[in-house]
Write a protein that binds this DNA or RNA. Structure first.
Lengths: 231, 231
DNA sequence: AGAAAAAACTGATTCAGATCATGAATTTTA
DNA sequence: TAAAATTCATGATCTGAATCAGTTTTTTCT
């Protein structure tokens, strides 16, 4: 039997919101005075791959999809829940553009933090820089896991994976409202819409999950985890 | 016609070796006095995924493969040439283990830098921390590109991609000696050994490349780039 | 409420690439 | 240098999942 262990196509990094604790009151005031609070409706774009990156975005509330795109295809990199940060890769000195796009999956409130101020703080406050390093590391590791899963797991494993990730890491509950269409779930899992539908049906038939409208309920997380590991 | 642009399965990040310039003479001495120079033969393991990460590795010379593994599968994340750094993701406060394995593709000399010293320098020298942030960003972006390519390009595109990456970014020449077996090339491109053989044959038949033993020569880089983009 | 549009679903077909089986060529080693 | 082992190569087959085509259900709009 094929055995895949450890890696998950889960999209979420931990601990993304502790980095601001390393700032002095004075530095925090800098942020306070320069931040811009913005609200987005479901489907709206927070940042567009290739556009000039003028700010780092902190997600106060909501759920955001980070994704790569070209003329034809899309690849969801991460789901960012509240507390997450978008645009850190634009801190690299080699380019000041957004390297990915971000779209609100739910209504979302976010703060725009001026990128040059961010740069300044990273360059002057080593503790803060260390925290940013941590966030980058975590994000990288999460991407590695997702990459591995997408390359080596097949459809049922990826779907099981994704459902467990949503339940345990995004919504913290075995029952949750997922504001995604089948097409969007397909994007998230890297499968076709039809495959998503077929797999969900199979899971329902085997009583692993229940779906009513947008409400998902996981009945047998152990079994899903097993599918995620072995398939 | 399908069109994929921009993203490459290329494995190499730029500018990995400038970060030490930000250290004071005193700090550099710290490294000098604590570093351990080690040589590896082709095939030897520099670090093992899951093992305790006691050091960051700087590649002085040679070529190293970074990869994820589980009981069954393998995924090559990056090729690290001289000047590259291995193990930065182990700097995260959440875990001090190696998150990937590394193996020498050629005879390689490397320096082991104590990880707690590395931590100390990141936490005390913001300029250095900024440089590390840069390296992490670049590496993340490169992984994103590779992820996208692997998900959306098909075999010919990925092979063309990989050949061009080797020529332009690793060996800086349209003719190079590649110390890899077909099996290893398969790992690198994420294809099966047989597919690699078939595709290389096709490329040879169409006179895009020549192969003699381990010596590869690229005759038509433009065509390869086109294949990489469109297919 | 009724029409139009979008989303969900289902079955049939296709396809890219893996896997399998086998043989030739090269390298290793004894 | 002969035997063994590895790597390279090629054709046949298989398969997971995408694509295609069409229907039903749900949502949106007027």
């Amino acid at each position: 039997m094929k055995e895949n262990s450890g890696f998950s196509s889960c999209t979420l990094s931990y601990d993304m919101n502790t980095c601001f604790e390393k700032l002095s009151d004075e530095e925090l005031m800098l942020f306070e005075n320069n931040k811009l609070e913005v609200t987005y409706k479901k489907g709206e774009i927070l940042c567009k791959q290739g556009a000039f990156a003028s700010h780092i975005t902190f997600i106060c509330n909501g759920l955001v999809r980070l994704y790569l795109e070209d003329e034809v295809n899309t690849l969801t990199l991460q789901l960012i829940p509240s507390g997450g940060i978008i645009g850190l890769t634009s801190l690299t000195k080699n380019s000041n553009i957004f390297h990915y796009s971000a779209m609100a999956y739910q209504d979302t409130t976010a703060q725009h933090l001026d990128i040059s101020m961010f740069h300044h703080l990273v360059q002057s406050n080593a503790a803060f820089a260390t925290e940013i390093t941590n966030v980058l590391c975590d994000s990288t590791l999460q991407t590695y896991g997702r990459f591995f899963s997408f390359m080596h797991k097949q459809s049922y494993g990826r779907m099981a994976d994704t459902l467990m990730c949503l339940a345990t890491r995004i919504f913290n509950s075995m029952e949750f409202d997922l504001p995604l269409s089948r097409k969007e779930l397909a994007d998230l899992t890297g499968l076709s819409q039809e495959s998503v539908i077929r797999i969900l049906k199979k899971f329902k038939d085997e009583n692993l999950i229940e779906i009513e409208g947008k409400t998902y309920r996981i009945n047998d997380g152990d079994k899903l985890n097993e599918i995620s590991q072995h398939g």
